[in-house]
Design a protein around this nucleic acid. Structure first.
Length: 222
DNA sequence: GCGACAG
DNA sequence: ATCTTGTCGC
């Protein structure tokens, strides 16, 4: 299916140009809850690498709501064209993710992305970037921290503490299950922090990571 | 100048 | 991310 982008920019850029693009796109991020009336499916996206890292492989999986059963999926491969640079992850992974989204039957109502959203030096982590380009509501789900400070999280499913940077709350450190390391949640686009936390909990059943992420990771890794 | 640093 | 076996614990 054809995917219409709200914004267009080159992906063949230098790190300095990438930062300029992030500073331009950050103005379009919306942190207000603005999800569809009826939410039919939630998607998970993840990226893996093949051939010594020279090939990028992105996977998207649509899960039904609220039962979380996989109803559709797509995979896309393309040559890796940008190195891993902390803070510039989207320039390495989004091109392949957009390819995968185009191979999907129906676009998801909300997407959970591997990595940070608003919890980013310029407030435009990969989840925000993908959301602004596609205008689809997105949520950032990181396994580790990129930025910000936080207190200890109570060891209880659903407990969370704010992630703070320069005096601003940029995300939440959420315990999705008791006895596991917490995950780093932050709004991507068209959703609030509390809304993001609710959706991540809604998508997490028996493991540390959301079912969306787990299915996508499975497809992105082989 | 010295660390920190999503995937 | 990826390279990789065993091992500790519920």
């Amino acid at each position: 299916m054809k995917l219409e982008l709200r914004h267009q920019h080159s992906w063949e850029v230098t790190p300095k140009q990438a930062i300029a693009i992030q500073n331009r796109l950050r103005e379009f991020v919306s942190l207000r809850d603005d999800l569809p009336e009826q939410i039919r499916c939630v998607a998970g996206v993840d990226v893996g690498f093949e051939e010594n890292g020279t090939v990028t492989r992105a996977a998207v999986v649509n899960l039904s709501v609220p039962d979380l059963l996989p109803i559709d999926s797509a995979v896309a491969r393309r040559p890796t064209s940008f190195p891993y640079v902390p803070g510039l992850l989207s320039f390495r992974e989004i091109p392949a993710i957009l390819d995968a989204l185009e191979n999907l039957g129906d676009l998801p109502d909300v997407v959970l992305v591997d990595g940070q959203g608003y919890a980013h030096p310029r407030r435009l982590g990969i989840a925000c970037h993908l959301g602004v380009l596609t205008d689809i509501p997105t949520i950032g789900v990181g396994k580790t921290r990129l930025l910000g400070a936080h207190d200890d999280v109570p060891d209880l499913r659903g407990a969370w503490v704010p992630l703070v940077d320069r005096g601003e709350t940029i995300g939440a450190v959420l315990r999705t299950r008791q006895g596991v390391k917490p995950v780093y949640i932050s709004p991507g686009h068209r959703i609030s922090l509390s809304g993001a936390v609710e959706w991540v909990m809604r998508c997490t059943t028996r493991y540390r990571l959301p079912e969306t992420t787990r299915h996508a990771h499975h497809l992105a890794s082989g």
